[in-house]
Design a protein around this nucleic acid. Structure first.
Lengths: 233, 233
DNA sequence: ATTTGAATTTGCGCTTTAACAAACATGGTA
DNA sequence: TACCATGTTTGTTAAAGCGCAAATTCAAAT
């Protein structure tokens, strides 16, 4: 494998404050690998042997219940760390990670975690802030799930996806990876049927357009109104 | 105020691995205060000026939505840190903290966070594992809320409260602080009416007894079966 | 002792949304 | 090209659980 260029990770929040020479060493110690769309990166319950940095693509992180229900915890965007069980004091991965599109992923062995956090306190601080942000986000979703109706939650989910991963096209904001009705239902705690009905209804009202696994938001403002709880369709 | 004894904090997970002399210094730098039942310790959106350690009692942590709905994020038990916005990279508290019973609380100024984490790496590690555990717990609840019916969720909530805060009596396991139907509904994303009905039903079946703001679990096993999703009442 | 407010119980109607079912569309692959 | 797996739409039905209302119990305050 050819050497990785420092510019790849220079702009990434977790590595802010680390000098170029050290970054280079970090990259030398990393393993780089391509995952095809649909390929598993790690599995819930599996030994947490590595932690990961997504260089390019999107990764879907999900949990499976004892009953076989799946819920999507979050999507990882490029530049984000994931699978950092070490930071949380876990020795098994608490979730599944699957490439949502073709991905480029860096990984380091789990024992490298201590090396890097010891050598680069800023990395530790940055990373724990990431964990903190995810805790906030998770609690935010708890509140949503507890207090909002399905329609609002789905509107919110679509809105967030558009904001986080959206790519501007001449029509509107396109969600940048294939996402099915089922995926959205697993993000919002409902059924794909209900999601389908909602999307159809919104499409009729010109709020968005959708094809199979593709959604383009046209009227983000309208969606935001629905997400906020306005009941006039 | 009289000096605090090191034995107060010696057994607390966050402080494991810190020598007695240093602990003493920590205690000297801490502020100790008693909060009466119902008193606010900090408020959502308020400046995160301090972080806290609960020495005795129980603290209810809740979030308020824009619509005025409240949900209970978690109960803090004695020995736990809370209000650690600093660790999460926040400068405002993301939730409310209220004394659920009379409480004894230690607190340190926010800028002391850097002092202590720098001087005691084990403290940092321990604490971040706490944050990690809370993230796990939060995601666990997301899964519950997404996939389980109300009955299961309420059973789970009661079961967890009994396990975490339960006190054995000759009848069964008593939840150690006053908790209303409303509280439980705010933990499980339902209404106090539904909770009331469920508790009444369970009381009739001898699974638990409840008075106003008091719940004693008699048949934890039965409750666990309901929590797991068995539908025979 | 009385009052007042909070917590709880219970009934009933109704909305939301899940469950089931079946047809249909689409894109990849043999 | 035809087929097949996967994803989507849509209709119908039924149940879960919420909203509303009213009665009741209890505890604390005056």
């Amino acid at each position: 494998m050819s050497a990785l260029d420092v510019s790849l990770v220079a702009g990434i929040p977790s590595f802010r404050g680390i000098e170029a020479a050290d970054l280079k060493q970090l990259l030398t110690d990393a393993r780089s690998r391509r995952y095809e769309k649909g390929e598993a990166i790690f599995n819930q319950g599996g030994d947490a042997h590595s932690f990961f940095l997504l260089l390019d693509g999107y990764v879907r992180v999900s949990r499976l219940t004892a009953e076989g229900d799946q819920i999507i915890v979050r999507y990882i965007c490029s530049g984000e760390l994931f699978g950092i069980a070490q930071a949380l004091g876990l020795n098994k991965y608490p979730a599944n990670a699957v490439a949502a599109v073709d991905c480029i992923v860096l990984s380091w062995s789990d024992n490298y975690w201590n090396v890097i956090t010891k050598k680069h306190p800023t990395f530790a601080t940055n990373t724990y802030q990431t964990v903190g942000a995810r805790l906030q986000e998770s609690q935010e979703r708890l509140v949503e799930l507890s207090t909002e109706r399905v329609e609002q939650r789905v509107a919110n989910a679509v809105l967030n996806l558009a904001q986080q991963t959206g790519r501007k096209t001449d029509e509107g904001i396109l969600i940048d990876f294939p996402i099915s009705r089922k995926d959205i239902s697993e993000m919002t705690g409902t059924t794909l049927h209900t999601v389908s009905r909602l999307l159809s209804s919104w499409e009729q009202h010109g709020i968005l357009t959708s094809e199979r696994k593709r959604i383009t938001v046209l009227e983000g403002h309208q969606l935001a109104i629905i997400a906020a709880g306005d009941r006039s369709k």
